[in-house]
Design a protein around this nucleic acid. Structure first.
Lengths: 108, 108
DNA sequence: ATTATATGTCGTATGTTTGCGTCATAAAAC
DNA sequence: GTTTTATGACGCAAACATACGACATATAAT
């Protein structure tokens, strides 16, 4: 399976972005990082009802997709949003939906 | 597993929306429906490099999440975008990212 | 040096998604 | 009425995602 290669790069990138956002824990992490503007370490765990291991894994996924970035500071790791990258993805997202915004096809 | 209940309804809804968009085939379907403004039946299959069964399944998922809507017309089914619903989700999406848009935390 | 703390990695169990072939249904064409 | 056509539903296999406990590493505190 995994036939994603058959689609255009645009759609694949957008789909990956959506996938990164497709779990409430990851959204909660992004939200938390956005709110506590200072970069906060992985004791994000205290704010999320999941085990430390699981949170760590979600952080890893967000990091791999470039939405966040962690900087080692002694024992702790300070995480923060990669705003540039996020904004870039949001632009692609919004231009994708521009066509849809302009349409009026459904009567339901 | 499946600990999603532990998160706020907002985040869960947003995560579901993102999940609906997390496959290039589904994005391709939405795009196609947006472009061919008239509602087009399931021979969407011709525009997507997947089997008819698989496309039908993606259509079902989009339908279940309320992003599209299918109306039976004899043998065929005319699908179209549920713009209202999509716009509603886009609003939630954008208000979620408003905070992030306003932040400037990452130096990378 | 030893202990405590913060974090990441590994392996594993279970659940979900993707993709497809085959069958069922139901309208339309003949 | 039989055949063709457009769909959807069912069931299966492979791949992926989610969640976590146990172990590893590495800095800081004692």
């Amino acid at each position: 399976m995994i036939k994603t290669e058959a689609f255009s790069d645009d759609l694949q990138e957008l789909a990956k972005f959506a996938k990164a956002l497709s779990h409430p824990a990851r959204l909660a992490i992004l939200k938390y990082l956005a709110e506590t503007k200072t970069c906060i370490s992985g004791d994000i765990t205290d704010f999320i009802p999941l085990s430390r291991t699981t949170v760590s894994q979600h952080l890893k996924e967000l990091k791999e997709f470039g939405l966040i970035h962690g900087e080692i500071d002694g024992l702790k790791v300070n995480y923060c949003l990669c705003n540039n990258n996020i904004l870039k993805h949001l632009d692609v997202f919004e231009s994708f939906f521009k066509t849809i915004r302009a349409t009026e096809t459904c009567y339901k």
